[in-house]
């Protein structure tokens, strides 16, 4: 996956935000320049890669958001937009006008939503989200970040049913940033959170929604029954933590938000995506040299040695190592 930050500005203040520290770093509210959009398309195509994720901040804040999506589509890329779904009227109008004919199989919005009880609506955000999903629902799936083990998903299933969204729910563990200042799911709460997730099996099955797991879930905290359920619903679970490759508006590149300070470099220093990935894979190896996984028994784990499970996320390991030292 390659994540392109169109801007570091955002419209929300999620308690678990992994990007807050990174966004605070560049206070200028920078937007990715059009010339770099073309450069990135060439760079990725040259690397044999035809999938991009457009992220932020809030990517739809970029004044040329629709243009950028259309450009990548015109270059035969598959495009995923990670958005809050909270758009101004003008931008929503552009989405409807310009992206209303986009191919459903090549454009996806992952609408990251929060539990409205935990993060109450401000400034009509819920209403704006509803308007976005009413227009872009065909292209949209929901994403939810787990930062506590007593979360609810009922509101998400309601949105999926109401707007007839894509039948996938992307689930991520809220990982700690380098300073651990965000709300994140501590290692000892991952097991209970997975158990909580399994408690929503009936809802997933009722709406035929596939649970899609983002990076950092440890295999050992799933029962065989849970794994079977995930696969049966089309979830294709993966327990690996690889460099995601995030590219900033000023063309810096790092592994992912929580590891933004590890091996950060200019994209122009690389000739291909393969070189970038190798650079950050070496960073991950270095991070794991002292501690192979988030649990003590990761060191002797068969699944980890066979490469089936990474032993949790590298950013969690970093935070644990820093806490220990």
């Amino acid at each position: 996956m390659v994540n392109i930050l169109l801007t570091d500005k955002c419209v929300r203040q999620c308690p678990y935000c992994f990007a807050g520290r990174e966004m605070a770093r560049s206070a200028a509210g920078e937007f990715l320049a059009w010339e770099n959009v073309v450069y990135l398309a060439d760079f990725l195509q040259h690397s044999g890669h035809r999938r991009v994720s457009l992220i932020g901040g809030e990517p739809t804040l970029h004044p040329e958001f629709a243009d950028i999506v259309l450009y990548f589509l015109a270059r035969a890329f598959e495009v995923t937009v990670f958005t809050s779904g909270i758009l101004s009227d003008a931008r929503l109008g552009e989405v409807e006008k310009y992206l209303g004919e986009a191919p459903v199989n090549r454009l996806t919005y992952v609408c990251n939503v929060n539990d409205p009880i935990e993060t109450p609506d401000t400034d009509g955000a819920d209403e704006r989200l509803g308007r976005f999903l009413a227009i872009a629902g065909r292209w949209s799936m929901l994403g939810f970040n787990i930062y506590r083990d007593d979360f609810s998903l009922g509101f998400a299933f309601d949105l999926i049913a109401r707007h007839d969204l894509k039948r996938t729910l992307r689930l991520g563990i809220a990982h700690p940033t380098a300073d651990g200042a965000n709300a994140f799911l501590p290692v000892d709460r991952i097991g209970p959170a997975i158990a909580r997730l399994a408690g929503f099996k009936a809802d997933f099955e009722r709406l035929a929604v596939a649970p899609s797991l983002d990076c950092g879930f440890p295999l050992c905290r799933f029962s065989d029954a849970d794994l079977g359920w995930l696969v049966r619903l089309g979830g294709r679970p993966s327990f690996i933590c690889r460099p995601a490759i995030d590219i900033t508006p000023d063309m810096q590149v790092y592994s992912c938000f929580p590891l933004a300070t590890h091996g950060r470099a200019s994209l122009f220093a690389f000739n291909s995506l393969q070189e970038v990935t190798a650079h950050f894979a070496a960073e991950h190896t270095r991070i794991r040299a002292g501690r192979p996984g988030i649990f003590d028994d990761c060191a002797s784990c068969e699944s980890r040695s066979r490469g089936v499970c990474a032993g949790g996320a590298s950013c969690q390991i970093t935070l644990m190592a820093e806490a220990a030292s």
């Binding site: 040329e64 629709a66 243009d67 259309l70 450009y71 589509l73 015109a74 552009e94 310009y98 004919e101």
Partner: peptide
């Protein structure tokens, strides 16, 4: 012109 206006005509 604006790329979004041109995209459909490429």
């Amino acid at each position: 012109g604006r790329f979004a206006d041109l995209a459909g005509r490429l």
